[in-house]
């Protein structure tokens, strides 16, 4: 456990950084623009998730390349890697793993640079502002043959005392299935 936290710290120190205000304002502007474009909150959540998935499937390679953590397809082990290395490396925060079971676990965190300055207006109570993160986790795990379902169950923007992302295991994608599709 401790060495995940350490590799996360090391990767964070080495990585290039940007000003967190630029980051949160850019993300905010993007969400606001998507809301204007799609007008439907559920669709906005879906789009954020899809964008996240694309990001995640790229980020996981960087994570493994820069930290030297062995690639593992064990669902339970991914929890600590995401919480201590992934979050630290790309967001500068760490999450806590709560209630890990072979079927699901939750990631909780309080600080979140993405939501600086944000206050949700009344008319978008269903918006999952950080749904991008769920997509990132889903996309990343897909690359290591783990299919998961991922969603926010608690959100500080909507008045909860912490952020909680629930990750539920769906299936292990077998390599042989891939081979067959090429046959």
């Amino acid at each position: 456990m401790a060495n995940f936290a350490r590799s996360g710290e090391m990767a964070f120190l080495k990585a290039d950084k940007i000003n967190s205000e630029i980051f949160s304002l850019t993300y905010g502007a993007m969400v606001a623009q998507i809301m204007k474009d799609y007008e439907d909150i559920e669709e906005v959540n879906r789009q954020l998730d899809r964008m996240g998935q694309n990001i995640g499937s790229r980020l996981i390679d960087e994570l493994f390349a820069k930290t030297g953590i062995p690639v593992s397809s064990n669902f339970m082990e991914t929890a600590e890697v995401i919480a201590k290395v992934g979050f630290k490396m790309f967001l500068g925060i760490t999450a806590n793993v709560v209630n890990p079971t072979p079927q699901q676990y939750s990631l909780t965190f309080r600080d979140n640079p993405m939501v600086d300055f944000v206050e949700l207006p009344d008319n978008c109570a269903n918006l999952r502002y950080c749904n991008l993160l769920c997509g990132v986790i889903r996309g990343a795990l897909e690359q290591v043959q783990i299919k998961v379902e991922c969603h926010f169950v608690r959100d500080m923007l909507r008045g909860d005392e912490t952020n909680e992302i629930q990750v539920r295991f769906l299936e292990q994608v077998r390599e042989s299935a891939l081979d067959q599709s090429f046959a």
Binding site: L25, A32, E119, L120
Partner: peptide
């Protein structure tokens, strides 16, 4: 700085 606030429009935030 709130991305959901349009500049020069009424401020409705209760906070």
């Amino acid at each position: 700085l709130n991305p959901f606030y349009e500049p020069n429009t009424p401020i409705t935030s209760p906070a």
